[in-house]
């Protein structure tokens, strides 16, 4: 559904048009019918990539195909729905009027349009009284729901959402998560960026991690987390003086008898140390890292 190869983008800002590379080399492929999470720290290039996919930015070099079309072509946008980060709309319109406006631009009209609006609003749990109020009175969460509802009005094959969960309370996040899953069940490919990594882990089939304008990890959540360095928690039935500890082993919080080994080598060193010192090992836990752990590790690596 989306093919991106060696994508590069540079912004030019200031009086002297100083260049700043936003994307240095981004390549990924989003198969049809998947939920694809796009994660990374602020300024990593997530929104830039999304705007390149929607034709709002022009690439410097590389290849982008959205539903088989170049994003600069109107044809590509017939297949996608997009909701920007913190969506802004014409605040003198009501939510329903806004939906009609965008629906008409998608070629809908009359009863089919009204039916589609009802469907989209109910999917986002936005079919409430407030939908007939002016948008200037909306909270951030209401705006986010309307933003996603307008993106799905045309029943697109591909839904691109930039931070769809931001500004939502837990109920709103659940509603959006369920809407994404429901649309995906109907065959919609969903490409979205998010900072809420627990949500990404829960619903994404595949994930790409972008740091410093480059894709540093790509695959299923299992692929990404299983390749990352795992922590080992070793419980020992006696106190150990800090000074004697092998490298990369630290106590867990204030618990003096639980020790965290950063990797398998540290674990082996610590077990050796315990055996030689006659310290009884009670149990050992292998803790798989979360996406957040992997992302933090990648950010630290990029900074060094």
């Amino acid at each position: 559904m989306i093919e991106v190869e060696n994508l590069q983008k540079t912004y030019h800002s200031g009086f002297f048009m100083r260049p700043k590379k936003a994307l240095t080399d981004v390549s990924f492929h989003v198969p049809k019918g998947v939920i694809y999470g796009f994660i990374g720290p602020n300024g990593a290039g997530k929104s830039t990539t999304i705007k390149l996919l929607t034709g709002l930015l022009r690439k410097d070099s590389g290849k982008i195909l959205v539903a088989g079309f170049d994003p600069s072509k109107v044809e590509s946008r017939k297949h996608l729905g997009y909701s920007p980060e913190q969506p802004y709309f014409y605040d003198y319109l009501t939510g329903r009027e806004l939906m009609r406006f965008y629906g008409r631009l998608n070629g809908l009209d009359g009863k089919p349009l009204e039916d589609r609006i009802t469907w989209a609003l109910s999917l986002l749990n936005a079919d409430k009284d407030w939908i007939d109020r002016r948008l200037r009175t909306y909270s951030k969460g209401m705006m986010q729901r309307v933003g996603i509802a307008q993106a799905i009005l045309s029943k697109p094959e591909l839904l691109i959402l930039d931070e769809p969960m931001s500004g939502l309370d837990p109920v709103g996040r659940k509603d959006v998560r369920e809407a994404i899953l429901s649309l995906n069940k109907e065959g919609v490919t969903v490409f979205y960026s998010s900072h809420l990594l627990s949500d990404v882990e829960t619903i994404s089939h595949r994930v790409a991690m972008v740091v410093g304008g480059k894709i540093v990890r790509e695959g299923t959540v299992d692929d990404i987390t299983s390749n990352a360095s795992a922590e080992y928690h070793v419980h020992v039935a006696a106190d150990i003086p800090d000074a004697d500890l092998p490298q990369d082993v630290k106590p867990q919080g204030t618990t003096p008898r639980e020790w965290v080994c950063k990797n398998a080598e540290a674990r082996d060193r610590f077990i050796d140390f315990c055996l030689k010192s006659g310290l009884p090992i009670e149990r050992m836990e292998h803790q798989r890292p979360s996406l957040e752990d992997v992302l933090t590790e990648e950010i630290a690596r990029a900074e060094h």
Binding site: T54, P84, Y102
Partner: peptide, 14 residues
């Protein structure tokens, strides 16, 4: 400046 252009130009219009 109001960023309404982002949503508008993502629709199938030139």
């Amino acid at each position: 400046q109001g960023r309404t252009v982002l949503t508008l130009l993502s629709k199938p219009i030139s």
